[in-house]
Simulated assay, not measured.
Amino acid sequence: MNTDDLNFAYKVRHALNEKLDDLPASTTDRLAAARKAALARKKADAPARVAARKNVLAGMASQLFAEPLSWLGRMSVVIPLLVLVAGAAGIYQFEQEQQIAELAELDAAVLSDELPLSAYMDHGFNAYLTKRAQ
């Protein structure tokens, strides 16, 4: 039952309980008999089922090769993690190579131009090189 159904049931019960003293005895007896019959037909409470998973953390190393399906289950977690680590390392390596290539291009451009030595001492030129390197 959802919340609205429970609220409605409580309101009906409260309304019936308010007028209980005004009912005739024959109606009260019929209601009591109907309640007993309803309780007799009520299904027994079934125990709640709980899905418990087997612990696969520390201390389970002895069962690694005992159950082949659990070993495959562990590999289904390890393999994606390895792929993720390899992908992250590949992306890092690619970014490093891109940065080195950009710096090499900037160095080649600076070295190929014929600049006087005083240009390298100028703070504005250093700011330009720093801005271009980023």
Rank of each mutant, 00 (worst) to 15 (best):
M1F: 00
D4G: 03
L6S: 09
L6T: 07
N7F: 07
N7R: 10
N7C: 01
Y10C: 10
K11P: 01
V12A: 06
R13C: 12
R13L: 15
R13W: 10
H14W: 00
A15R: 02
L16V: 06
E18K: 13
L20M: 13
L20F: 11
D22I: 06
P24E: 05
A25K: 11
S26E: 11
T28Y: 04
T28K: 13
A33R: 05
A33Q: 12
A34R: 04
R35F: 13
K36N: 03
K36R: 11
A37T: 09
A40T: 04
R41K: 10
K42V: 02
K43V: 01
A44R: 11
A44P: 00
A44W: 01
D45N: 13
A46K: 14
R49D: 06
V50A: 08
V50L: 11
V50D: 03
A51M: 03
A52N: 10
A52V: 15
R53L: 08
K54S: 10
K54L: 13
N55E: 04
A58S: 08
A58K: 05
G59S: 05
M60E: 05
M60P: 00
Q63T: 14
F65S: 03
E67L: 00
P68K: 09
L69I: 10
S70A: 08
L72C: 03
L72R: 01
M75P: 00
I79N: 02
L81C: 04
L82C: 02
L82H: 02
V85D: 01
V85M: 12
A86T: 13
G87Q: 02
A89C: 08
A89E: 12
I91L: 15
E95H: 01
E95C: 06
E95M: 04
Q96W: 01
E97G: 11
Q98M: 10
Q99I: 15
Q99N: 11
Q99E: 13
I100E: 14
I100M: 15
E102H: 15
E102P: 03
E105D: 15
L106W: 01
D107A: 15
D107V: 12
D107T: 14
A108K: 13
A108D: 09
A109H: 14
A109V: 14
V110M: 07
L111H: 14
D113S: 14
D113A: 14
L115N: 12
L115H: 14
L115G: 04
L115E: 12
P116Y: 02
P116D: 07
S118M: 01
A119C: 13
A119R: 11
M121P: 00
H123V: 10
H123F: 10
G124D: 06
F125S: 08
F125A: 07
N126I: 13
A127W: 03
A127Q: 12
T130W: 03
K131E: 12
R132P: 00
